[in-house]
Computed example of a mutant assay.
Amino acid sequence: MSRADTQPGTDPNRQGWRLRARMRYLYHGSSPAAVRFRLAVIVVDFAIIGFFLAAPILREAGWAFYVIDVIVALVLAADLAARAMAYTDIKDWLKRPSTWIDLFILATLMFPQSLYNFGFLRMLRLWTLLSSDFFWRTVGQKYDDTRVEEVTRALAALVTFVFVATGFVYATFRGRHEDLHGYLDALYFTVSSLTTTGYGDITLPGNWGRVLSIIIMLTGITLFVRLAQTLVRPHKVKFPCPTCGLQKHDPDAVHCKACGEILCIPDEGHH
């Protein structure tokens, strides 16, 4: 065995440990360098989401679309690998629904021809990003556990649903209605159904089309109500009661409403 093989720095296990430690530092650290790294990751995420949004139109560009598709797939694969290394327990990481959503999105990028009809699910990336602790720990530190976070999460769910439903309508019913040919037509139908406006100029054919229209209307109303409730209801802060475990209380609460335990909730200056 050569001397180089016995040097600690060349030990593959030690190198792997150092790489994992580095990923944990970047993805979970609180230093300015780690925060800047995560901000860059979030900017790239939004750029990828923009590509997903424009994909139905960009697909007509031919080979250029597939080049961008491959680049996005490589970036997303690198990000997922880094997140897996940064996570203490990979098995626990794999149990997270957002992980499986991202893995499926990666599959649609790696196999764009065979999984093209499922491409509309890529917009779920918007929901997983804006609902993640990763996002709020980075750009939302002063907004974490505030009304801003609640409104953003509710709005993200509504916007994500609009574009996922639009993509599904476009992939499933394009060409089956004389007025539904492009992505904008599908978006117009989704928004008019979701708001229950129902102009009637574009309708989905068959019983399955009626069922889908009902689902869009009911889900849209539910998400609108949730957003409205988030905007008008009094804000509560997350502060678990040490006795009964009630998670949220009024910002100025002195006693827990469930059990009467005395609380000491930090004010905004110390939140």
Rank of each mutant, 00 (worst) to 15 (best):
V72F: 13
L74G: 05
D92T: 08
L76M: 10
I71G: 12
M85H: 13
S98W: 12
A77P: 10
L103Y: 14
I101M: 04
I90E: 10
A78T: 13
A81H: 14
F120P: 05
L124M: 13
R122E: 04
F111M: 00
A77F: 15
L129Y: 05
A107N: 10
W100F: 04
F111R: 01
L80H: 12
F111W: 07
V75E: 13
D92Y: 12
A78I: 08
D92K: 12
K95F: 08
L106H: 04
L103R: 11
K91A: 08
I90C: 03
F120K: 06
Y116C: 00
L121T: 01
W100T: 05
G119I: 00
L115Q: 05
T99H: 08
I105T: 08
W100S: 07
T128P: 02
Y87K: 09
L124T: 00
F120M: 03
T99D: 02
L103K: 06
T108A: 04
D102T: 03
Q113K: 08
A81F: 15
M85I: 07
R96I: 05
R83N: 14
M123T: 03
L124Q: 03
L103F: 15
D102P: 01
F118V: 01
L80Q: 14
S131K: 03
W127K: 00
L109V: 04
I71H: 11
S114E: 07
M123P: 00
Y116D: 06
W100N: 07
P112E: 02
L74D: 02
L94Y: 15
L124R: 06
A77C: 11
T88R: 09
T88G: 09
D89Y: 11
L74M: 10
Q113D: 12
M85F: 14
M123R: 03
L115P: 02
L124E: 02
L103H: 11
V70E: 06
A78H: 14
K91I: 01
V75P: 06
L74H: 05
